[in-house]
Design a protein around this nucleic acid. Structure first.
Lengths: 201, 201
DNA sequence: CTGCGGCATCTTGCATACGAAATCACGTCA
DNA sequence: TGACGTGATTTCGTATGCAAGATGCCGCAG
């Protein structure tokens, strides 16, 4: 097991919300926090910039990217594009063991974490390395932006239903169905976002 | 204008084919080449890794990514997904000045360079920052892999026709048409690749 | 009271130094 | 002859120093 790299620790800190959007990231402070020097921190920040999690301006430092309504909708529009495609590819490539994992995740305790794992497994099952990097570059946001979903009973039920339908589609190796369900799943999230996060602020 | 960053010089060198796929990238040698030290080189390599142009393995160094047939087809499959979407968004957002630029590019001398600019303008006109980074992460390959297109007369003619049709679609702000033409355009390239680059090696 | 200029301080960007891991070469032993 | 182990050399990863650019504060003039 490789020791945890600074990049991953920093990514986790941002996704967990310990470092908040808009917050200035001073290299020296982060170095102390992770018990290392500024060099690995700088490298991590540059990698995370390519992932859209931080913004680095030359000679002015890095800040955690801020995500307003338009950003998040933009992001989900790309998910709505990429993930159905990934699901379609996965339908004819995924192996039974993975399908079992997906099925298990439907009954998991922590639905927030389970949901992430669920989508990641499908993305990887698409067996398109480029698709993975495209998603990574486009879709990282702090989890706090997604917790709203899991507080709404109807949304949670619909999500779970979609996941179960996806498992069924994979078992039947039905690419069209998988694609359609995934598109509905993502667009459902978009609609929920637009409802609960109205324009007027 | 900011001075040319090492990252861009290195990217150019790879896209131009000066550094060939599979070639080992020793930090010290690159540092001398660009008249700098290893630190900026390391940072550039990590950024380009996120862009899919190089592969960095811990404690073992960086290599220019090799692109085999499957890689390139995988890449074009993602273009076929993203660029039609970008074209559809651009159709209702692009301003007339940009359309004029696109029209001018159809008559440009260097079709290889003009083609790149053409697609970049459309991508930016989609006004989706996430879409831009997704494309960048997914679609960088050395230009040598694309030169084949411009040696085939029929392919060149079809390409030019698609470009002109796209300009017309933008003038009419017809998102559906723009999307369809762009999809045909990219899938045409895929078909050409599959013809000219047969599986049997 | 407000806007501006200059100085002190802080932060970044790059170069360099040093320890650690990997690679390579060579000699030994089966 | 071939496989393996050991030492030398190369290359990477991290820490730190220093110069250049950015930030912030205070005083001054209008």
């Amino acid at each position: 097991m490789p020791q945890p790299r600074v990049r991953d620790l920093l990514e986790e800190a941002i996704l967990e919300g310990e470092l908040k959007p808009g917050e200035r990231l001073r290299a020296e402070a982060l170095a102390q926090r992770f018990g290392t020097s500024r060099t690995p921190i700088r490298e991590a920040l540059l990698q995370l910039e390519g992932q859209g999690l931080v913004e680095v301006e030359p000679n002015r430092g890095a800040v955690v990217r801020s995500f307003d309504r338009d950003d998040v909708l933009d992001l989900y529009e790309i998910r709505a594009l990429i993930e159905p495609h990934a699901a379609a590819r996965a339908a004819t490539r995924i192996d039974p063991a993975r399908i079992a994992e997906l099925a298990a995740l439907c009954d998991a305790e922590d639905q927030l974490v389970a949901n992430e794992a669920f989508h990641r497994i499908i993305l990887e099952a698409a067996e398109s390395p480029r698709l993975v990097v495209a998603m990574r570059a486009a879709t990282g946001i702090p989890r706090s932006f997604r917790t709203a979903f899991w507080h709404d009973e109807r949304q949670r039920a619909e999500s779970l239903m979609c996941h179960r339908r996806l498992v069924a589609a994979f078992e039947a190796q039905d690419a069209q169905l998988a694609e359609a369900v995934m598109r509905m799943h993502i667009l459902g999230a978009v609609a929920f976002l637009e409802e609960t996060w109205p324009t007027h602020h």
